[in-house]
Design a protein around this nucleic acid. Structure first.
Lengths: 214, 214, 214, 214
DNA sequence: CATGAATGAGTCTTCATTCAT
DNA sequence: AATGAATGAAGACTCATTCAT
């Protein structure tokens, strides 16, 4: 009993602290998406979270640390979504690949806010190797999975002319490219349309496993 | 005589002035590519150009103006290259499309420096409509051309299952996506390999008009 | 019985409270000696005492109060040492004077840590009259004693050319000056050497009462 | 002529910049002497100099740099005064030594303002080796001179019982100690009185070369 | 045209102090 | 008594912009 209470108190305290951190991370994403990297200050973040100035440096080492934790959250969330989607999907390679793609165009993942944040970080990636590292930590596994699935499809489907490594690369590229268009021209291109577009390209690559839609 | 001399002096001055502007625009691109948007200041730009502090505000209205002119230069250069490539190429739609793609992976256009600058701007695009406008001024025409060429190919090649609009969109997306990978992972992916990858995807889309390479 | 218990508890509490105060004062001296005045914060103090942040404001009114109590402790400790040494020493004026000087170069009093703290406070004294007051409260008595002893020596020894007031002043000055050198050049000058040096100067002032050493 | 003008312009410009630096150094000394180290901010300095915030970081790398340059100025000024005084004085060792001591109690050197600054720096010296280095750069030479003069006096005057090294140390200590008393008790002790006190002590050390005064 | 000193608004960060638990 | 999260004032430093020369 005593232990239970003790644990509860501890977890409560921890939860509160964790909640505050998450609150600040959310506010950071909102600010970056609204004002961009250079328009985001500690003030816009804390004001967005309705908290005081000094609080950020209490929960995070400094601004850079807050940014890294924000990117980490984003990357981890993405990872969780696609890996869970794969776990739920049919083990068939085409179904597995479809699961990944579906995730990438899901409302939660592919929201205007988060796209803006992703590209803000990528725009800085060259000069901040840390950002790249954080991103890679989670995303490299997705690369591996896509390559594996492409290889299986090529073998099973007899797509002799296709190099699976290259195909995987192209699939990742088309997703990123469509994300960029969703970011730049949200009026012209809608999320579901982009997803269909992506699937149709897949149908052109692997006609026996994917069919046209939309 | 006097007029002639006068005119000559003026044109000299203009030339010098234009040269200074270009010098500053180049320094801006270098700085953005080396230090990113938020690491670039008037000081890093002028120092990079070996010029004095105050000079920028003489040639450009302000920092924002310098940035806009820099993006304008980049966009215009891109435009000049692909439109010239198309002019030189065979009028055949597949050759015209190939010309555009070749341009996008040309050494001058697709250099690490310029990719970094492009994505820095795109990372800010959502919050600076002006950037998008400048980019669109030149790039919309490329969109139109690609759509037209896809439509011609679909008609000529009898690719009944392909929506030309969507195909064009996918082609633009794959280029941007490969650019992002070239920016983020310059070690893993090389420019020429990315180009081949892109052409192979085209071969999967329009098998009668493009053949596998690499 | 109840009262007894109560009283005991109270005295325990008081003891604990006093112990906490002393713990914090020690931590303050350690921090000032390690990081200097401007490097010392409530955080460095509490961390040094392995206590929580908020505790200082419970035991001391504020930072300034803590500093004053710290200086007070230091001054009182000094006072206790030299007055006790005088009580133990031979009542002869030269023995009494020697007792004071010995104390000033004792290991406990003249430690590098405490010298650093003394000079930190003196460096601030001009702008914080309170520091001077606290220091004077205890030190003025030492001044009086030294003057008295010098006067006795002059009278007894027939040092007609010596002004006892001035001699006392010079003795205090030489101690402070040697302390400064011990602080600034701990490698060059050692505590015991400084003491000998001081006594040798005394031998030059009062040759009949002090003899050369070292 | 042209060269002359050119040189004049250059030296003017340099002079202006140097003058600004000196202006800031003076304001720093005033602020340290008035408010102490921890009470001195960039704002108090610039306000004291009737200049704007940003100017300090234009002329000095940062606050620390300003402090070091200030101490450097102080140390150099001291050096210049005593070395010039020695040059002007009779070459006789006692006259030379007297010249140094006179300088140390000169109005310019021994002003309340400068004493406060000296002790502020010394109060920090333990934690900022740089301060000590700067101080030593100039002051070590004074030490050497004093030792040399004491050695000469001991030899010439037959003060067999005196160790010249120790005597030099004591002389330096008495000066510093009197400076501290001038700082702490400006009401009780006056500059000229302190100087006399110091000379009287010298008369006790080297009776054949110095006589009592005051 | 060009320079670079000067300005001052704005940013990150620190830190003494408060306060709910 | 004690904790540590939270506050907000204040500090150092940056940087776009202006302006006298």
């Amino acid at each position: 009993m005593k232990n239970g209470t003790q644990r509860k108190l501890d977890s409560d305290r921890t939860a509160t602290k964790e909640a505050r951190r998450q609150q600040l991370i959310n506010a950071t994403m909102v600010s970056i998406s609204k004002r961009g990297f250079s328009g985001t200050t500690m003030a816009t973040v804390t004001k967005g979270a309705s908290l005081s100035h000094g609080i950020v440096n209490f929960h995070f080492k400094n601004k850079e640390d807050l940014y890294e934790k924000t990117l980490g959250y984003l990357a981890r969330e993405h990872f969780d979504h696609w890996s869970e989607a794969m776990a739920k999907a049919d083990p068939d390679p085409s179904a597995q690949l479809a699961a990944i793609l579906e995730t990438d165009f899901e409302r939660t993942i592919c929201s205007p806010k988060k796209l803006a944040v992703w590209f803000s970080f990528w725009g800085q990636a060259k000069h901040r190797p840390t950002y790249l590292e954080i991103h890679s930590t989670y995303d490299d596994q997705r690369s591996v999975e896509i390559k594996r699935l492409c290889a299986e499809l090529v073998e099973v489907g007899g797509y002799g002319h296709i190099d699976p490594i290259e195909a995987a690369q192209n699939i990742e590229a088309i997703i990123d490219g469509l994300w960029l268009q969703l970011l730049l021209y949200p009026k012209k291109l809608k999320r579901t349309k982009a997803r269909d577009s992506c699937f149709n390209l897949l149908a052109q690559m692997f006609p026996k496993h994917f069919s046209h839609c939309g």
